[in-house]
Structures are given as C-alpha cells and as structure tokens.
Design a protein around this nucleic acid. Sequence first.
DNA 1: CTAAGGACCTGTCGGC
DNA 2: TGCCGACAGGTCCTTA
Length: 270
Amino acid sequence: MPELPEVETTLRGLKRHIINQKIQSVIVRFPKLRWPIPENLTKILPGKKLLTLKRRGKYLLFEFTHGTLILHLGMSGRLYIVKDPISFNKHDHVDIQFSNGKTLRFTDPRRFGCVLWANHGETHPLLSKLGPEPLSKTFTAEYLWRKTRNKKIAIKNLIMDAQIVVGVGNIYAAEALFASGINPTKPSLKVTRSDCGKLVNAIKAVLQKAIKKGGTTLRDFANADGKPGYFKQELLVYSREKQACLRCGASLVCRKIGQRSTVYCRSCQK
DNA sequence: CTAAGGACCTGTCGGC
DNA sequence: TGCCGACAGGTCCTTA
C-alpha cells in the first residue's frame, strides 16, 4: 500500500487525534510482524505522553521522552483511529488506547509491516542508512547524478532504493519516470545529467500532488479517519498496461524490472 | 563493492 | 462452482 504520500497522509490525519495525549494501554494481539513486536511495549508506554509524530521515509516515528516507537506499514498496513475499539478482526494486530478516549489501531493482513522501539538517544539500525528525503533540499539533480555514476542497475530500481532516496515506491517511481521521459529499464550510468534534473523534479512533483490528493488508494489504503486517497485517478501509467499513453496514444507496455511490474510508454520514454 | 533473486505473508482475481 | 497460479503499495538478507 503505502509509499511516502500515503504515510504522510496517515501522519497528518493522526496528529489532531493523538498528539500530546497520554497513553492508557497498549494491546498486542499478534506480535509476529516482519520482526517481533518488542515484548515490553505494553509496559513501557502506558502513562507516557506522545510528544511528536514524525515521518522518516516510509517510517512513522512516535516520540516520547524515553524513546521512539517506530512503525512501518509494509505492503498492506493501515493505521487509523478506530470507532468501535471493542470489536476487532483477524488482522488488527495492535491497539494503542489514549486517555482522551481515542484508540489507534494497526491492521496489516500481510504482516510485512513492523512495530519497533528505540531508546532515547539511540538510532535504530533500520533508520541509520536511509538516504535523503525526496522533498528536501538535499535531494538535488547533482546528488542523483553522482549516485547514478558507475551503476548498471535500472534507473527505476535506483530511485526505489531507500539508501539512495527514501519514500519512492512502485507507483510513484513509474509515474515520475513517465513524467520525465526516461525509460525505466535504462541503466543508471546512461542517464544524463539533464535527465537527472528532470527526474528529481518529477519525483518531487508527483509526491507533492499525491499528498494533496490524500494518497493513492488502489485497494485498501485508508487515512487515519478511514477515508481513501484520490490520486489513483491521476495516475498516468501505473496499472494502465495496454491502455493508450495519455501523451502520444501508443499502447503502454508492462515489464518486470527487479521483480516489480513496471508500466511505461516505449515511444515517450527513451 | 554491485546486482540479482529469494524470502517473508494473506487476500484477490482470472483462467480453466 | 472450485481449484491453482499469478500477483499485490516493501525491503531485508543471502548468494554470486
């Protein structure tokens, strides 16, 4: 499900419900996610006030005085304020109840998501190697150009590598490459300096537009209040295999690149 | 070091 | 109707 815009949408929607609120209790129904949920979580959180809620890449960071709860939505995770906390379903793995009566629920059928903890002052290993935020000033044409040198991997794989730049997943990588006219299969080292500039701008633009629309709901993404995102109707290539390119009319093709389906236009993307 | 592929999971959809 | 394989928003880890 979630790439940067969906995680950002989740974050923005959650804030007004839970910021500065004290945790009353934590219920872990099923601790086996990508990594086990720390056993002591139900003990170290109650009574603590949530100070800030941040995003780093696709990770959500819940900060307390004594440490940070780190949460990733994986492929199918959802995080939302639940209306009726008494009832729950098969994949409702974690509930965090706040003293204002709101319950934050983490639901994740495929369990590729994770809930972790880092003590105050420590950086979790998963976060320490992440590349720059795509919407920050440090993500520039010059930066991407340097990273593309001497690399044979397809440019699409490169921009989906969180050590290069965070937050770009399968949907927005395809969209950004279409917008910048670059063939996703092109080896990184063959991408020109000028194209790196176009690509960086396209990544920033598509992510910003998607955030404005509340993210992309393909199947089950929902924001903190259970509402879908509306960027799906703006998608120009993703999931449009065999349909007409909206720029030139040619039939869009689909190829596997690094195990992931990739739709693009062979005449617009060189 | 780079690059490729497998692994982790459940749910859904299309084809036979 | 039912079964089976392919595929899905991610990314770490192992292997070559």
